[in-house]
Design a protein around this nucleic acid. Sequence first.
DNA 1: TTTGAAATAAGCATTCG
DNA 2: CGAATGCTTATTTCAAA
Lengths: 153, 153
Amino acid sequence: MFQLDDYDKALLRLLQQNNRLTTEQLAEEVNLSQSAVQRRLTKLRNEKVIEADVAIVSPLAAGVGITCVVDVVLHEGSSKSIDKFKAAMKNCAEVAQCYYVTGTYDFVLIVHTRDMAHFEAFSKKHLMDNQNLKHFYTHVVMDKVKVSYNVPL
Amino acid sequence: MFQLDDYDKALLRLLQQNNRLTTEQLAEEVNLSQSAVQRRLTKLRNEKVIEADVAIVSPLAAGVGITCVVDVVLHEGSSKSIDKFKAAMKNCAEVAQCYYVTGTYDFVLIVHTRDMAHFEAFSKKHLMDNQNLKHFYTHVVMDKVKVSYNVPL
DNA sequence: TTTGAAATAAGCATTCG
DNA sequence: CGAATGCTTATTTCAAA
């Protein structure tokens, strides 16, 4: 596994806030030369320490008015039905995140929809009419207190 | 509010996968000139349709071995205690996401820690020893089925 | 006013010491 | 590793629609 030194960590901390900083700006911040920073970035991307570089689009601007957290319980059953549910969630645009978890329910979903009618349609299609599914609890998000994709370094 | 046309949506769809595509590559994909793409990107960033541009760092590479979903119930009480809890979560590096929600509990957290000992320490500090807090349920993530920060367009 | 093409500036990536 | 440099890409300008 790739070993990160303090320079790498400092760079990653900056880049997960803003990956459009120039290598020169980064160099300034972490006290390295531009070329040293350049070399490290290439390496971090090649080694997949940086998994991706993405634009974060405003949900509101994209027409997302409602975000819900949905807890899902499946019927006891084969690992096949679990895999099927996973595949369905992966292919669903409204589902931003899906976690398979231990505890009192099986999956947690973060779901983006335009409005409640859209959520209703989503849940009817993917949750209510799903035979594998025992029940689900919907929690409407009132405040996105913190939504970062950052990892502690 | 900013109105997105089909070109904007196409660009955003590409950029939320990869924001390091050159304006030329984007132009090719969406059938616009390089300068037209350039102008649109500037506008989308100025208008905060693109909220941020970030590097996604591999949790594993950063030493995150455990991700948990934590459901939190606070004691009945003032909006003051809610605000206090929100502020605490915002300032906590282990907490990647925090949602204030309707339903059977008040908050949902996505928490990144190195290992279970680290999670234990986190929960002791921020959850167990918190007087506002009635109880919490921890769900350990077994499979990150889908973790995208993309919004449907 | 908006568009694309060309010129200019800026930033990236490589080579070398 | 840092300094210097050629090469790529972004940004601005400008002429035309």
